[in-house]
């Protein structure tokens, strides 16, 4: 019986160091020195991913605050806005001024802020119908007969939703997505939820890329979605995308298992936020609390 596998050329125990390797220097170094252009950086030149495009890069006090402080501030602010009685219209003006002050401090352009606030529109559209549909005493406005409680409800929803959306848009514009996730983790959100969110962000671009290629493939064969008759095709695209995502999920899980994953992600090192950071972040809900209490007291 031969002592070593016959087809193996050279002494098996010795690590392979050909003369070419020794003289050529470290290829890794050569590659690194070639800079970002090496390896075809077409993709990296393509710009930031979907999730990162929300961040407006600036060096301001608001940007520098730790993400978990900002998250707590946002949550506190939104709760206080919701708690403010709807009759105290001036208090909502005050809340809006507070957000405007944050936007100025964070140097977020007003135009960009307004454009992003449009995401609210589909969600509050029904609020505009309330004055027409609600019961109760009616008043005439510009020849329309509107319900008074309906008007109050619509105002309540619109004002509070708009303030909440604006505050969220400001958070997204001043905080890196990655930091937001770490912030959620520090606030003791269940790790599984944070992991799911992290994977969503990581694969958002991969999935939108896949969707784009499927659309191009559809259109290259003469398809354009023009009406309900084409919804079947779009539904099948969605189905195919779901299956692809599911299969990718399986492959990712396999890759994780292969590197020793046993149900929990490694926890990165984190420095605690100082009292100063907390004080700055909580200034916003603090001011909102004053407004809310004043509104309740003067009711």
């Amino acid at each position: 019986m031969p002592p070593a596998p016959a087809p193996a050329p050279g002494p098996p125990p010795a690590p392979r160091t050909g003369p070419a390797d020794g003289s050529a220097g470290s290829p890794a170094d050569a590659v690194a020195s070639a800079g970002p252009g090496a390896g075809g950086a077409a993709r990296s030149a393509g710009g930031r991913g979907v999730a990162e495009r929300l961040l407006v890069r600036r060096e301001t006090v608001v940007h520098r605050l730790p993400a978990h402080c900002k998250l707590v501030a946002l949550l506190g602010f939104v709760l206080l806005v919701v708690a403010t009685p709807r009759e105290a219209m001036w208090a909502f003006g005050g809340h809006a001024l507070l957000l405007a002050a944050v936007a100025v401090a964070a140097r977020v352009p007003p135009g960009l802020l307004l454009r992003r606030m449009l995401v609210e529109v589909p969600f509050v559209a029904f609020a505009l119908l309330l004055p027409l549909l609600a019961e109760g005493p009616r008043i005439g406005v510009l020849g329309l007969s509107l319900s008074e409680p309906g008007l109050w409800s619509a105002w309540n929803i619109l004002a509070k939703a708009t303030l909440g959306v604006t505050a969220s848009v400001l958070l997204a514009a001043t905080t890196d997505v990655r930091q937001l996730l770490l912030g959620l983790e520090r606030l003791r959100l269940p790790p599984l939820l944070v992991q799911i969110a992290a994977f969503m962000i990581r694969y958002l671009d991969v999935v939108t890329g896949e969707l784009r290629r499927m659309r191009i493939a559809r259109e290259s064969r003469g398809f354009t979605a023009r009406g309900p008759r084409h919804w079947g095709v779009l539904a099948r695209t969605a189905g195919a995308l779901f299956i692809r995502c599911y299969e990718r999920g399986e492959r990712v899980h396999l890759a994780m298992l292969s590197r020793g994953y046993r149900g929990s992600m490694p926890v990165p090192h984190r420095a605690p936020a100082g009292a100063a950071a907390w004080a700055r972040a909580l200034a916003l809900p603090g001011a909102a609390l004053v407004l809310c209490l004043l509104a309740l007291a003067t009711r």
Binding site: V31, G40, S44, R202
Partner: peptide, 24 residues
């Protein structure tokens, strides 16, 4: 990362890299 010549990309998200860089 040094061994594959990608030390300069340590803090980048993977989807910003080219395909060859991601393989490395």
């Amino acid at each position: 990362l040094e061994r594959v010549g990608m030390a300069a990309w340590a803090d980048r998200p993977p989807h910003h890299l080219s395909f060859g860089q991601r393989r490395r």
